[in-house]
Amino acid sequence: MHEEKNNHHIGYGTYVLVWIALLAFTSITVTIAGVSLGRYTLLVALFFAAIKSALVINIFMHIKFDEKIFKVFLLLSGFTLLVIFILTFFDFLYR
């Protein structure tokens, strides 16, 4: 059981592929920022930032292959942050 968990090693190739994908998404984000999409510019930029962070967290940070509990923690803290954002904006918008 221990062997199985800790020996899930990712090869060099996978990392390089993820890196290429990250660079591709970066260039897409920069290119799109040059085109005027009005109010959607921010949404598109955040969308690509979210994809990039998902790649980094899952592959570079191994969360996909590590103990489930780390993923639970991560979702929990992300959810906490989301709740704080939503509550703050409720306060700000309807004060």
């Binding site: 955040l46 930032a49 962070s53 980094v56 967290i57 570079f60």
Partner: peptide
């Protein structure tokens, strides 16, 4: 790196 992924579009890509 992750934090920078968000800082970059929020500060440098406001066109």
């Amino acid at each position: 790196d992750l934090i920078w992924i968000f800082l970059f579009p929020l500060f440098y890509l406001i066109q």
